[in-house]
Design a protein around this nucleic acid. Sequence first.
RNA 1: GGGCGCGUAGCUCAGUGGGAGAGCGCUCGCUUCACACGCGAGAGGUCGCUGGUUCGAAACCAGCCGCGCCCACCA
Length: 861
Amino acid sequence: MSDLESRTRFEPAEVEARITRRWLESGLFSPEPEGAPEENYSIAIPPPNVTGALHMGHALNSTIQDTLIRLARMEGKRTKWILGTDHAGIATQKQVEQLLAAEGTSRQELGREAFVQRVWRWREEYGSRIVEQLKRLGASCDFEDERFTLDPGYVEAVLKVFVALYDKGLIYRDNRMVNWDPGLRSAISDLEVEDREVTDTLYSVAYPLEGGGEIVVATVRPETMLADTAVAVNPGDERYRDLIGRTAILPIVGRRLPVIADEYVKTDFGTGALKITPGHDPNDFEIGRKHGLEEITVIGEDGRMTAAAGERFAGLTVEACQRAVVEALEADGAIRAREDYPHVVPFSHRSGARVEPLISLQWFMRMEPLAEPAIAAVREGRVRFVPERWERVYEQWMSEIRPWCISRQLWWGHQIPVWYRDDEVYCGLEPPRGEGWERDPDVLDTWFSSALWPFATLGWPQDTPALRAFYPTNVLSTARDIIFLWVARMIMMGLAFREEVPFEQVYIHSVIQAPDGRRMSKSLGTGIDPLEVIEAHGADATRFGLLAMSSTQDVRYSAEKVEQGQRLANKLFNASRFALTNIARRREKHGDVGAGVGPDVTPAPVARSVEDRWILSRLQRAKRSTREAIEAFEFHRAALGLYEFVFDELCDRYIELVKPRLDDEDAQATLLHVLTETLAMAHPIIPFVTEEIWSLLPAGVARDDLLAAAPYPAADDALLDPQAEAAVERQFEAVQAVRGWRQAVGVPPGPRLPARLDASGYDDIAAGIALLARLELSGDGGEAIATIPVPGGAVAVLRSEAVDLEAHARRLVEQRATLESEIQRAEGKLANERFVAKAPAPVVQAERDKLERLRRELAEL
RNA sequence: GGGCGCGUAGCUCAGUGGGAGAGCGCUCGCUUCACACGCGAGAGGUCGCUGGUUCGAAACCAGCCGCGCCCACCA
């Protein structure tokens, strides 16, 4: 205890490592796979990239999930937080390629097999970093059952899904236009493309017509004209009607281009005539297929012009080629106009390169048949989004879903289980028998394997106990940016392969922006490292701060909220230190260690006074609202409500009021009870400090086991006491009135002031008022030198030289003015006949009561 | 082009039909026997603008202004 007495501050760094070790050694986070999903509770963590380091988004999301998980665990549910990392094809491959480059070699030089081995070695060395960082935050994941999306079992799940969808005809190979990322040299999906505003030049180029005349087309990409195979106009366009069916001559190249009609062409944009380049423009590709046009490719996968572009341009970069083509057209006098043209163009989210639309042989997945039941699941409430508005966003995207390009030209990932031999194609879990087969070199989009996360992590396709116990999971928590990339696809795959939704609720949490409102990002230098925050303020403070600043909308990072959390941890620690050292000291003196405290139970509260009944009543409300707020994903309400309870009610009021009674065993029991319940109530939010204090509770109060394993305290309605709440409310109004008066009239806060209570309804609470407002109350009938209005009467201040009567008079004038204006307002309201007639009776009555009270107070003055 | 969200105290944000709130910051006071990461008392707001619904609007509806995000194949 003497040790505790000297610890005047909560020191997180000293405590956290010790507590973490106890948690991990307890096995509490690793439940036996038993029971049914309905009685169990599980969350699958959004798997961080193996390459990743904990950023603020992870920290918030992990805190949210851990708060849910810890609450569920304390509610007695078998609770599993499924942990793992994602192989993150592109990010990881890039990382290792950079290493190789630094070593003066490359993946091509190593060859595929050696390269993949190299990535595995890298993963062994660095892949657990983020998992260790999660421990620092206090995350109670099942660390003993960590998964990886390239584990052998996981690979089996991925291949099985691929083969099944292939057999159903949902996965197919096709030569189509894809988003080609020249930086990555791979196809990417629509969702990995981001639009950026760019100002290009819009050129008007004249194409001569066979037999005389010309047609002028508009383009921002003159270099692609080398692959033009037609010119299109709108069939209803008077200007060009006569030209349909004629032939244009492609400048520079000399190719003959049919002039075709297509509704797609807008008459009011550009020149109304459109050059058609099926090989390098998605729209033109569709038009080309519709009209059976030739598809010519002049831009290669390396982002340079191919031989088909002609000797003059082959080998040039796209940019250089554009300049060369424009020069050539100028020399021909073919450029009729140019203007600056701001528009959005696609860039790769992965490499940052400008996306090059190319025709390429890739694997695609038809999504509509999978989307349909996934839309129904949300519509029927089997999956619910919080906040609800995301359901519409989800549904809208799902109802317009397009084929998903799932093949990537990478080496790190799930290699596609398809083999070729001449014209034969084989798809299966095992390689085909016989000689001469060659496996498709491509790997699957990382999100393909992520889509299986909630069940592949539990052992599917094996029918494992874990799968039976924890699927479906309860909640998925994430930011909105991966609703389509990941959440929607998990729902589709869960329904397709488990016939069950993967989770019941999807919580979409805030995106935390930099304090200045910009995106938090390493490259912008706006990132804040959560580990540094933990170092500086503690994990509890970080968790509290993140929850307190979170919302249903994006928020700016608030260092103040973290500091608020640090104050809460410190306050709770000091309040506990006060209670524990005092009670221990007094019991030692009296030689009874634990009277009134049963051996294995939280001490039963013994309410002797109105403030005891009050704090017990307030405690029930705090427990209820904290739990309800967490369950409703209103984490800021849970965190800030806890702060308010601890500071305003437990510390500033109850502990102050109970101080003089601490020799009383009943008061000790009540204080200990409130303290232990508060610790338990707060634990899901600030687990470290609460666990630490729990371990310091006297024998008989603290169980030997962990607070993390203790039951979450239920709100007991029998302890609600509206009378006590009203009484203590009145008490504090009176205290505040006296304190305010003291300040205003310059009476120092320390000395006790002789006074008399001329008010009714103060039998139980007068002593507390005297204590907190520093009054010496007596029944002295002498004359009051000053009168302080309090609810139901006044405090009469008796003879004292400490009172400045002029200041008192000034205060009286101010208070009268305030009261009079409030009375006027109430009177006005009640004089309004329509208010009295139409407003609900209780509202009118409340107004009348208020008016009466105000009038009494004015009279007291 | 379609959709969503947000404009409340100097700052960051709660609040959704009956007397404008929190944290930080600011002012004043306090070595009150747990905590100065503390305690007490204060100052500070046309709740973006306009109109409507209502006895009553920061909240509900409409329009406007400003900011942010998502989706979308007009060269």
